[in-house]
Design a protein around this nucleic acid. Structure first.
Lengths: 242, 242
DNA sequence: TCTTCAACTGCGGGTATCCGCAATTCAAGC
DNA sequence: GCTTGAATTGCGGATACCCGCAGTTGAAGA
């Protein structure tokens, strides 16, 4: 039984290693990878039983790596280990989990005891262990009233990339008016109703950029997610113009 | 000689503590603070000789804390210790360093040897020790051609907060046309010249949001900086409407 | 002192965005 | 089958944004 630790920070890597060795005496070998790319290669060329995966990493992020690994082996046990419970991460993970897969999502602020419990639960007993806080985000994002629809989330990332209405319409294969309609709903859910008005200068906020400004601190968007969207958009642009 | 370590991550805090104890046998006591607020209080009520300060922290960020501390005691030696060399951080730090103050800026990826050298250099020999990579960013941001003017940087944060042209004009006490003029220069430096045109759908990008989309991965903007700008804007909004 | 250059400003117009109103579609639920 | 509700789309207009041109200011340097 070999465990792979994927984490760029050397300190955290060492901490995870001792924690795994302590919690899993059954584990024969602890493999290490310092980014997603190396992790994928390691899994391909070794007998890996389970993975602890950091989500914030330079180069291939944790979500990308997990996606690739699960495509090759949908039964792989993966315990995500993240600094933040950003909705962008939670959505990213939820979207790539194969049905029936065993995984966990723990925050780095969790105690060593909770970590070792999660390691045993996910790796030995096939439990899905989701941090309380993460679970909250997950549920909220599934709520129709408070959370964003997938459509709204989509259009949010599109404007955050700087696309025009027309381009979004072409990319998502809907009309320009529908894009604006989705935007309107997005603005409502983010409480951008134009009521922030200065008596002297009129509306204070530009809805479009304000939406991005609100989405960021709320964790709806983050740098990693945007980089991923940017890539998929570059792909679309290339295919499209040819 | 007491040293204060300000860092939210417990692992890194412990690592810094042993490093300081090893590099500075002269140090009598190592104080610890897990956020900027506590750091300011600690400095106020203890005899602190020098500080190692993380820049990414919840609540009061490292820049805010350093600013407050330097206002009370401009001679305090501060060694900044950061995950990233984002231009937003570098600018933030450069803006608050009192003239003649002794400080350092090291990345977390630096080796333990470099860290201990920096600790001795800054605390014992009053040297300013700036990481090579950070220094590069610093110089580039001072370059008139490649880097952004303070005006351009200002207007960039304003649109990232979602303000309209009129509101920016009012806040910065210039005309609406000047805001647009600054924006035009900003767009040029970020290479947003409207040349990204789809033959079928016209311009691909909305300059305003595209600028923010480009500024983020480049590190010109980041979440911490935006939160700070947001606060100062809230202040302005309050003062203004009264 | 004169020159030079960058920033600020006004004017005008072309385009994009925002939004209310209303018709259509389509799937879910009684 | 009927109703309900959400999503999509068109139309039209009010605003906001982007930008070229040109005149002014102000400060640094010959």
């Amino acid at each position: 039984m070999n465990v792979l630790i994927t984490e760029d920070d050397a300190l955290h890597r060492a901490f995870l290693k001792t924690a795994v060795e302590h919690a899993l005496p059954e584990c024969q070998q602890v493999l290490e990878a310092e980014n997603g790319e190396i992790a994928v290669n390691t899994v391909a060329s070794n007998d890996v039983y389970g993975i602890i995966m950091d989500l914030q990493m330079p180069r291939a992020s944790g979500v990308d790596a997990a996606k690739e690994i699960w495509q090759l082996n949908p039964d792989m046990r993966i315990l995500f280990w993240s600094n933040y419970a950003d909705e962008a991460y939670v959505r990213g993970v939820s979207r790539i989990v194969p049905s029936g897969a065993v995984y966990g999502y723990l925050l780095k602020s969790a105690s060593e005891e909770r970590l070792e419990l999660a390691v045993r639960g996910v790796f030995l007993q096939d439990q899905c262990i989701i941090d309380r806080e993460v679970r909250g985000i997950q549920q909220r994002s599934e709520d129709t009233l408070e959370g964003l629809t997938d459509s709204e989330f989509e259009v949010l990332t599109d404007i955050a990339l700087g696309l025009t209405d027309k381009t979004i319409a072409a990319r998502r294969k809907i009309s320009t008016r529908s894009v604006q309609s989705r935007l309107k709903h997005l603005y409502e859910k983010l409480c951008i109703d134009g009521s922030d008005v200065d008596p002297e200068f009129g509306p204070v906020f530009n809805s479009r950029t304000r939406a991005v400004a609100i989405a960021f601190p709320r964790g709806l968007l983050n740098a990693d997610g945007l980089a991923a969207s940017q890539e998929s958009m570059d792909g679309w642009l290339g295919n499209h113009s040819v």
